[in-house]
Every structure is written in structure tokens, then in C-alpha cells.
Design a protein around this nucleic acid. Structure first.
Lengths: 347, 347
DNA sequence: CTGAAAGCGCTTACAG
DNA sequence: CTGAAAGCGCTTACAG
């Protein structure tokens, strides 16, 4: 690259010190600098098309105006939507964001944290993979500003912004019950991640508090390694036997997608043969035959607030903020109310 | 943040100069440094958990090992998939990537370029919006290393990595003709972007070289501002009148998505009432009733090669590389071969 | 084999 | 009102 013009070049051209140039261009000490000199400096800066070197500025101020964002996989719509929201909010405050995908892998996550920290990002937004508590604790010990996003560890006193996961599935099950469904299955991920286990807990409580039995056999925990066949099999299992389910709740967007694929290939009719509640919103639903009832996360609010909180906590001694946002249940055709059989309602 | 340990700290602890520490930790001049001192330096570095400050290193070397990536919108699956591929390839070579979304807006693109350049990224990967030729020319004048990705300007002699857009739709139309379709419509974007106009040109040539008339009325150019209703209307228009189309080719992934939505809500049967070729591959297709024939871009190859080329061109005097990758036509049910009417085939 | 010194491009407390 | 000077944390040509 061609050498860019520096403060020194301007200083020389105008015949002043670099200090003065710095002050003028940063609009500092305005009242103490003669208008004439200031004007000339600005003019020359313009002429030479001066662009400050952020790296030098960063070294001096130890602020990079850069945020690190660690997502599960930037190619995943949830992550990329989040990235976009964070980008916009960061930009609004003059920050740039550098991202990395952890692939839900603790080693990768650690490597990303190290890389981003070596690059002196001012703060970190982290969708933490399972098994990264110790990494997060270390960050905290180092007093690195960060906020956990989407996931968090209940055992750690850190800032986070996440969904009220418990309530999200609770509401979904409640809605199914209200619509007349009684044998409700759950397809979820086998993981220690709190935000997922909370979803299972919400499902269980909703059943019990509505007088329905919680049956372990109706909860299918998948590893996520072999998605399409595993989900297909889980659905089959739930729908066969002497006590088949009449509704299924999915606890993640991927599971929902794989589930709908399986439902399509198994020619299951929604909602007459099976009611379905999906997790997260996605364009893909719109191409599916039946419109899908789903749990909608307030992504916009989540990304925006998380970024704001992070930016806040760049100031020393900012208190921890822990927020659980409420999901919205978007009710569509896949959970249409059952006409309760006359026999039952008569009794 | 807590003060991190610096080269100086190690130097003091060991009782040597920072220079020596730097050499040892960077594995330089290995043969000229006593094993004992080197060992001790490494040990202390380990003990103090030394992490080099990339910013300082960057200021000195004027290399940041950071790549800038400008996409249309990181929330768009095409962009985010690309971002992921770039991330992985960059990481493999020890680079980090910072991204920005242009929203196809020249002003935003310019702002992004300036920001990224001020942050001293080593090079730029740009999916250039329409109307940014001058920005790209300026980059070239400044000898900033960059490679255009997905889009490019035929008038500019710059490195790029893109699709063979002409051939992509040519092949699609050819396939439709081979399958017996004769009245083929095109739904495309109204834009000056070369990669899109090439797709229209491919469509036109394929028709003409296969003895079919090119009719302007069968090409619908949409602004993209009002997607769902506009696409629905375009499809209706193409399928009514005295010469309705029997097939439609879409030239972008968004158009395809909106098109399929419209097709679903208009209850058009694929392929009996209409054959469809989509652009790009997306999960969403898998939830659609009919499996969709689509033009598949070699995303992986594109992102990976583009990154490699950019990394290459960080070395001075690297020649320009211009590459058009071939698309693959993935043939599925939506363009099933028509049984040619007996009358016609008999003649 | 080792180190003093300059310098990357800025900012800023301090002195005048 | 203005500027000399130190320093952020590194690298590296140079001297010994």
C-alpha cells in the first residue's frame, strides 16, 4: 500500500507541532487554539486526505473501538442475524466488530478469546459453548468487559442477556394444552447448556401444573451429530406405541427444521395428525405447507441491548446486568385448536 | 482490564533486554542465542502468561493479520455462508476477519472501506454494491490489496472471484428446453450489477441458440423494494394472457424464495403447471412441497479461493487474478421432463 | 552470543 | 495560544 499521510506530514506542511495537529483534528482545546492555525491544519489535512491510523491511536489509548463477537456459527441464521444487529448497534457508537465461530467447541472458543484479546478488542460478546465456564471465569478475573449472549451459566455472576427459556416452552405447552392437546412430546438436544435444559424444565412444569403427566419417554434428547435420521426416528418413536403423542415441541431452530423435513417426508398432516411448535423464526417456515406456530425470540432487542450493555460496561465499575427477555408465541395453523370430542366434554 | 504482562516485564524478570525476549519468543536468530537464556525466557513468559499485544506489533510491522470483509448483509444466508468460509480459510493462515454489511448502498460501502482501512486491515474482500466503481478504482490507485467477490466490474482490471453468471442461466434454460419447456420466463432484479445482467444475457442467448424467441415481455425486472407482492404479481403476469409461460427462472436467491412463497399461495402445481429453476441453494427449499431445481454456486470454492488469492496478493507485485467459477445445475422435480405431445413428436 | 537505541503514528501531561 | 517530550508495546538494523 502507498504510504498514507500522517500527523507529522500535516505538521510539517503547516509548520506546527504534531501535538497541535492532533488537538485540532480531535476537536480538543478548541478555545485555546487560534482559529487561523486550526483552519489551516484542517485544510491541509483535507488536501492530503489524512486518515488517522487507528492502530497507532489504539496503542496509545489502549482502546481499539472494536468489539469481539463469538457465535456458534456465523453461517447459522440465528448467529448471523445476531451479528447483523450487533454490527448496526456497534456502528452507531463508532465501533467495529470482529467475529469468530466457536462451533460449540470449547477449545475453539478459547482460541478465539485469546486471539481477540491479543487484538485488544475493547469487549467481548459471547454465545458460550458448553464447558466454557472456566474460560468465562478467567475473563472475569482479568476484568475483561464481556456480556454473555443467548447462553449463560447460572453458577457464574456475569452479565448476560438471554431468553427466559423456561417460560418460552412453558407458554408453548400451555398453549397446546389450552388447544386441547394432551399427549405432548419434546424433541431437544442432549447438552448441559443451561438455556436448553431450561426449555425442558419449562415443558415439564407446564405439563404438571396443568394436570398432565410428565413422561420421560416423551422427551427425546438428540446428540445433533446425525440430525436428519435421528429426528426422523424420534418423531416416529413418539408417534407409535400404545400412547402416541398428539403434539411435539422442538427446542431449537435446527431441530425444528429437521423435524419439519421429517414430517414432510413421513407425510404427517399438521395439525390433524400432529401439532407442532417450532423454536425461532425462519424464512424456511414460509415454504412449508402448514404455517408453523413458533417461539419467537426478541432477537433485535437481545442483540441491541447486549451491545449497549457491553458498551456501558467498558466504563470501569459498571455493575453486572442479567436480563432474561420474554419470548413471544406466534400462533399459527400447526397448533390449531382441537374440537374436543363430545363424549369427553359431556362428562 | 488488568494490565497484561509485556515484553519488558519478562526482560526485567530474566534480566535481559526486550530485544532478546522478542527474538526468543518469535523464534528468531535461534542459533545465536544461548539455550539457557532462551529456556529461561520461555519459562518466565509462560509463568507470567505473556500474550503479545498485536496492536503494538501491528504498529511496528504495519501488518495487522486482519482481513476486511464487506458483504451485502451478514444476515443474508449467502453472505453469512461466505463469511464462514472466509473465516475458516483466514484462520488457517493466522488471520482474523472483521466484517461489515453494505446493504447494497454505495455510501455505506465507502464508509466501511474507510473504517476498515483506518484499522489497517491487510486486505479487503468486497462484494461490491452497484455504483461503487470509483471506490474500487481508488483502492486500486492506493494499491490496497483487495479482491472482489461474487460481483465485479468488467470495466475494471481488478482481481475478482465470481460465478460464470452467463453460463449459469444459459445452462438452466438449456435444461428447460431439453426437458420440453418452450415458453420460459425470467424474474430478475432491476440493477446495473454486472453479475445480474449477465444472468439475463445467459437466458437470452440460450433461448436464441435453441431456436426459441426471446420476448421482452417474459422478462420481469423487479426493484426488490417490495418483494413479496411484486414477485407474486410478476408470476401472475407471466402466467396469464394468451401466451403464458410454462417455466420460470429466478436469478437470485431472494427472488427464488419470494417466488416459491407466491407459488405456494397461488396454489400453482410444480412442475405440471409451471417449471421452476431457483438460484442458490438454501435449506428452505427442503421444506417446499416439490424439490426445486436450482443453480448451485460453488460457495466453498469461491470463498476459499478468494481468501487465498487475497492472502497471496498481500505480497507486492502479485499479478491480478480474475476467475469465473462454473455453477452446477442441481436437477430436481420442479423441472421434470414434459412428455412431449404425440402430435409434435410425430411430425 | 547480547543489548542499546530508534522508531511505528499517535496522545497528552506539562511547561512555557 | 503553542510545542517539546515522553510513551504506548513491540521489532529490528546495527554495533559490539
Amino acid at each position: 500500500m502507498i504510504k498514507k499521510t500522517s500527523l507529522k506530514d500535516i505538521a510539517q506542511a503547516v509548520g506546527v507541532s504534531t501535538a497541535l495537529v492532533s488537538y485540532v483534528l480531535n476537536n480538543q482545546k478548541e478555545n485555546r487554539i487560534s482559529k487561523e492555525v486550526a483552519r489551516k491544519i484542517r485544510q491541509v489535512a483535507q488536501e492530503l486526505n489524512y486518515q488517522p491510523n487507528q492502530i497507532a491511536k489504539s496503542l496509545k489509548t489502549s482502546k481499539t473501538r472494536t468489539l469481539g463477537l463469538i457465535v456458534a456459527d456465523i453461517a447459522n441464521p440465528f448467529s448471523s442475524s445476531m451479528a447483523r444487529i450487533v454490527e448496526d448497534e456497534a456502528d452507531r457508537q463508532g465501533y467495529t466488530v470482529v467475529f469468530g465461530s466457536s462451533d460449540e467447541n470449547p477449545q475453539k472458543c478459547q482460541k478465539l478469546i485469546t486471539t481477540l484479546l491479543n487484538r485488544q478488542v475493547d469487549g467481548l460478546l459471547i454465545a458460550a459453548p458448553a464447558g466454557t465456564e472456566s474460560q468465562i471465569m478467567t475473563l472475569q478475573k482479568q476484568t475483561v468487559p464481556f456480556v454473555l449472549i443467548d447462553r449463560y451459566f447460572p453458577s457464574l455472576k456475569t452479565s448476560y442477556l438471554a431468553l427466559d427459556n423456561y417460560q418460552s416452552t412453558y407458554d408453548a405447552v400451555r398453549h397446546l394444552v389450552d388447544s386441547g392437546y394432551q399427549r405432548i412430546g419434546l424433541i431437544t438436544l442432549k447438552t448441559s447448556l443451561f438455556h436448553i435444559t431450561e426449555r425442558t424444565r419449562g415443558y415439564q412444569s407446564a405439563l404438571q401444573e396443568n394436570g398432565l403427566p410428565f413422561q420421560k419417554s416423551r422427551v427425546k434428547e438428540l446428540s445433533g451429530n446425525n440430525p436428519t435420521p435421528d429426528v426422523a426416528k424420534a418423531i416416529q418413536l413418539l408417534r407409535t406405541g400404545q400412547d402416541p403423542v398428539d403434539a411435539i415441541v422442538f427446542t431449537t431452530n435446527s431441530l425444528t427444521f429437521w423435524g419439519l423435513k421429517a414430517i414432510k417426508s413421513q407425510h404427517i398432516n399438521l395439525p390433524s395428525e400432529l401439532a407442532v411448535v417450532g423454536f425461532d423464526e425462519t424464512d424456511a417456515y414460509e415454504l412449508f405447507d402448514t404455517s408453523i406456530t413458533y417461539i419467537r425470540q426478541p432477537l433485535q432487542e437481545m442483540g441491541q441491548l447486549a451491545t449497549k450493555i457491553l458498551l456501558e460496561s467498558l466504563n470501569p465499575n459498571t455493575p453486572i446486568t442479567q436480563t432474561n427477555l420474554k419470548a413471544t408465541l406466534v400462533i399459527q395453523a400447526s397448533t390449531q385448536s382441537l374440537s374436543v370430542p363430545a363424549v369427553q366434554s359431556a362428562e
